[in-house]
C-alpha cells in the first residue's frame, strides 16, 4: 500500500520535545547522578592503582576504563550494568505513557504518521543517553589527564572512541527493547518490570545457563577433556548461546577494544601458534569486535521493527 506524504513529517517536532523532556526530567537527573557517582568512584580507584604501579604501559588510559587483571569493579562493568537501567528508564513508558495520559489519540489525530512519533521517541531517548555517555567519557578522560599527567596516544583515543560508540549501541538495544515493551504492555509498571526482569535474567542467569545448555546440546568429548581442553563443538554452542545476551556481546567488544593484549576466545588459535605477548593493532581489534558490534546494531533494529509493526496496527482509543 502506497502511503502519501512523508512518514517523517513531524519527526523533528517530536524529537526535540522528547529530548527536552528527558534532559529536564527528574528521572534522568537521578540516573545520571548514579552513573557519575559510581563511575567516578571506580575511575578514581583505577587511577590510584595505575599510579602505584610503576611498570611501563603503553595503554595507560585504557587501564583507567578497564583495569588489567581480575579487578572486581571497573568503569566498563559499571557501564554495562547502568546503561541498560538508563535505557530502560528512558524507554519503558514511551508509548503506553501516551495512552495512559490519554494524549495518544489527540496527537495521532494530527497530520503525522505513527512512524514519526515512535522514531522521534526512540531517537530522543538514544540521544539523551549518548549525551550522558559523551559527557561522562570526556569527564573520565579529563580526570585521567589531570591524575595520570600524560596525554593519551592517538591509538588510545581511537580505541576509546570506538568503545564509546559500542556503548551507545549497547544502550540502543536496551532502549529498543524498552520501547517495544512499552508498545506491548498497556501498563507502564508491567513494561518496566518485564524489561528489568529480562535484563536481570540475561545478566545474572543466562551466562551459567548458556554453559549448561551448550553441554546438553553438544556434550563434551572425553578425549578433549583428558587433554584439559574444551571440546570445540561444545564451546561453540556455549559461546553462541551466551551471545544472545547483549551484555556478553558488549563485554566481548569492549575487551577487544580496551584490552589489546587480552586473550579472548578467538585468539586461542594465536596462543597455540605462539603469537602471545604482542598487543593487537587497532585494526585487528576492530576486526575482532566487528561481529559483536554488528550484532548489537542488528538486534536494536530487529527489536525496534517488532515494536514498530505492533504499534502500526494498534487501535488508538485513548
Amino acid at each position: 500500500m502506497q502511503r502519501e506524504g512523508s512518514p517523517w513529517r513531524g519527526l523533528s517536532v517530536v524529537y526535540f520535545r522528547e529530548l527536552f523532556d528527558h534532559l529536564t526530567s527528574v528521572r534522568m537527573l537521578v540516573l545520571q547522578f548514579l552513573v557519575v557517582l559510581l563511575g567516578g568512584a571506580v575511575v578514581y580507584f583505577a587511577a590510584e592503582q595505575i599510579r602505584n604501579t610503576t611498570a611501563e604501559d603503553p595503554f595507560l588510559f585504557l587501564r583507567l576504563f578497564a583495569p588489567p587483571g581480575q579487578s572486581l569493579l571497573s568503569f566498563v562493568l559499571v557501564l554495562s550494568i547502568l546503561v541498560p537501567i538508563l535505557a530502560i528508564g528512558l524507554g519503558f513508558d514511551a508509548i503506553n505513557g501516551e495512552y495512559n495520559r490519554r494524549t495518544m489519540s489527540r496527537i495521532l489525530a494530527q497530520p503525522i504518521y505513527r512512524d514519526a512519533l515512535l522514531f522521534g521517541k526512540f531517537l530522543a531517548g538514544l540521544s539523551t543517553i549518548a549525551i550522558a555517555l559523551v559527557t561522562l567519557w570526556l569527564l573520565v578522560i579529563g580526570f585521567g589527564l589531570l591524575r595520570l599527567g600524560v596525554p593519551p596516544s592517538g591509538e588510545e583515543i581511537g580505541r576509546l572512541f570506538i568503545f564509546l560508540l559500542v556503548t551507545i549501541a549497547y544502550a540502543g538495544i536496551w532502549l529498543a527493547l524498552a520501547v517495544t515493551f512499552s508498545v506491548f504492555f498497556r501498563s507502564t509498571a508491567t513494561a518496566a518490570l518485564v524489561a528489568l526482569g529480562l535484563w536481570l535474567f540475561l545478566a545474572l542467569l543466562w551466562p551459567a545457563l548458556a554453559q549448561m545448555l551448550g553441554e546438553v546440546i553438544s556434550p563434551s568429548d572425553i578425549r578433549f577433556a583428558q587433554l584439559g581442553l574444551p571440546t570445540p563443538d561444545t564451546l561453540a554452542w556455549q559461546q553462541g548461546l551466551s551471545r544472545v545476551s547483549p551484555g556478553t556481546l558488549y563485554g566481548e567488544a569492549v575487551v577487544a577494544m580496551l584490552n589489546p593484549d587480552a586473550q579472548s576466545m578467538t585468539t586461542l588459535l594465536a596462543q597455540f601458534q605462539g603469537r602471545i605477548g604482542a598487543p593487537l593493532p587497532l585494526d585487528q581489534s576492530i576486526m575482532q569486535a566487528w561481529p559483536q558490534m554488528v550484532s548489537l546494531i542488528a538486534g536494536t533494529i530487529l527489536l525496534y521493527v517488532i515494536g514498530y509493526v505492533a504499534f502500526q496496527r494498534q487501535e488508538v482509543r485513548a
Partner: peptide
C-alpha cells in the same frame, strides 16, 4: 491519513494533555 487529519479536528472523550 495525512490529508484527512489536516482538515479534521478531533476531541476524544476524556481528552488528555
Amino acid at each position: 491519513p495525512l490529508q484527512v487529519k489536516r482538515v479534521v479536528g478531533y476531541l476524544p472523550d476524556s481528552v488528555g494533555f
